[in-house]
């Protein structure tokens, strides 16, 4: 018993970390190794097929119209949503960086949307987007315009899904950028004003350079997150109409969990993991600097 106690004291560091280490390895390291392994097989547990095909899955993936469209849509969605969210977030942060009456009351309300479950949000927006009974088309008809096929038009569906993401997650970019604005010392502005800078020039030459890191982080964080887009596609459009809102996550879901082509789905998962990891690494380096 005493020997055990001594061992425990010497290796206390490992004892504290061990449970977390075991669970992380079990839940992430092992599955990642396995997903890579599966991606080299033609594997369908329902039809009981398991055959080694090497890189065959990858070759077929990049010849698959659905996957390529999904790749394209995912990039489009991620870049579009990220840029708009950070831009709107910046505008909102400038607005709330001013002192005005009611600011304390309105600030928590602006952050409201990101607290709701994505499914609840999809329920609301799907009802508002409805072609016949939706409030948007009602407003358009009342104002004398043609109703819009928000979720059922090939050209528009992806943008309608994007608008929901913008509504839900602009508050995130806003929070990051507001924190950035408030970390800029007021004396800097005064000094610049003494030098004769005002308005737009103040913004361009004082605010923007000092906000650079925060803008960069907001861009990284939002692009990593929007790249995963799945829930909204599932609940709003189901990937359609046609392949208009097909995304990589949705492709993996459909191949893996509806058709049980788990080999091919795994190959797509590996591709996706690598793509996200590139951006994640940039983010992690940034966080590391902040830590050190």
């Amino acid at each position: 018993m005493r020997a055990l106690g001594r061992w425990g004291r010497r290796h206390a560091n490992l004892l504290f970390l061990l449970p977390a280490l075991i669970l992380i390895v079990f839940l992430t390291v092992y599955p990642l190794v396995r997903v890579f392994y599966l991606s080299l097989y033609r594997y369908n547990p329902i039809r009981r097929i398991e055959r080694f095909v090497g890189l065959g899955n990858y070759r077929r993936l990049f010849a698959d119209r659905f996957f390529l469209t999904g790749l394209r849509n995912t990039f489009l969605f991620s870049v579009g949503a990220t840029l708009i969210e950070v831009l709107l977030g910046l505008g909102l942060a400038l607005l709330f960086n001013a002192k005005f009456r009611g600011r304390k009351l309105l600030l928590p309300l602006v952050i409201f949307p990101m607290m709701f479950s994505t499914m609840v949000i999809c329920a609301i927006w799907r009802s508002m987007y409805h072609y016949d009974y939706g409030i948007f088309n009602y407003a358009l008809r009342t104002a004398g315009f043609q109703p819009v096929k928000w979720l059922i038009s090939q050209d528009l569906a992806l943008w309608s899904v994007m608008l929901v993401d913008i509504w839900q997650w602009t508050p995130m970019a806003f929070l990051i950028l507001l924190a950035g604005l408030q970390s800029i010392p007021g004396e800097l502005y005064e000094a610049a004003r003494v030098d004769g800078a005002t308005g737009a020039r103040l913004f361009r030459h004082v605010t923007l350079p000092l906000l650079r890191n925060h803008i960069f982080l907001a861009l990284l964080l939002r692009s990593i997150d929007t790249f995963k887009i799945f829930d909204k596609v599932y609940a709003l459009t189901g990937g359609g109409p046609g392949t208009a809102t097909e995304t990589i996550s949705f492709y993996i879901y459909r191949e893996g969990f509806r058709y049980f082509n788990m080999g091919r789905a795994s190959a797509a998962a590996v591709v996706m993991f690598l793509a996200v990891s590139v951006v994640s690494f940039i983010y992690i380096r940034q966080v590391w600097r902040g830590e050190g």
Partner: peptide, 14 residues
Amino acid sequence: LLVRMAPPVVLAIP
């Protein structure tokens, strides 16, 4: 940190 950034669907199959 890398895991936290990774898409959840990647780990779904295993």
